[in-house]
Amino acid sequence: MKVLSLNFLTCAVKACKSSSNSYPLHPKDAELVQDDLEVNAQLLLNLLPRIDWTALSTTATELGFPALPPQAPSVEELQSDEKKLRDLHNLLMETQIMEGKLVCANCGHEYAVREGIANFLLPSHLV
C-alpha cells in the first residue's frame, strides 16, 4: 500500500470515527519498499488540495522521513521547486508499506499489514 493511502484511511471501529485521535493511523514496525516511478507533476499538483498535510507530516515523521514543512506548499511553490515535487512523489507514490502494523491512537487496535495488504477486519469484540 502506498503511503498516500494512509491519508485516506481511519480506524474501522465505528466508535472511533468521531474521535480526532483515530486519524491518522500510526505505522509501527513498518517495512518499506521503494518503487521507481515516473513523476507525474500534474497529479501531485491536483492532489495537493485534497491532502491532509498535518496527517501527512505525522506519517512521514513516523516512517523515518525528514520532517515536512509545517504548512503545505502552495501549488505555485510546488510547481517551481523540482526537489520538493520529487520528494513528495517519493513519499506519496513510490513508498509502499509492505509489512507491519497500523495503530489507532484512540482504541489502540493494531491493524496488521502483510504483503502490502492492510487487514481492517475487526475482531468480534470491536464490531
Binding site: 500500500m1 502506498k2 498516500l4 493511502s5 485516506f8 484511511l9 481511519t10 480506524c11 474501522a12 470515527k17 486519524y23 507525474n40 497529479l43 485534497r50 507514490m93 509502499q96 491493524y111 502490502g116 495488504i117 492492510a118 487487514n119 481492517f120 477486519l121 475487526l122
Partner: peptide, 19 residues
Amino acid sequence: GSFLGALQGDLVAPVRDRL
C-alpha cells in the same frame, strides 16, 4: 492512473468520510 493498493475490510469501514 495510480493504483494505491487493495486492503482487506468490510465495505468502506476504513475509508475516511467524504473522500
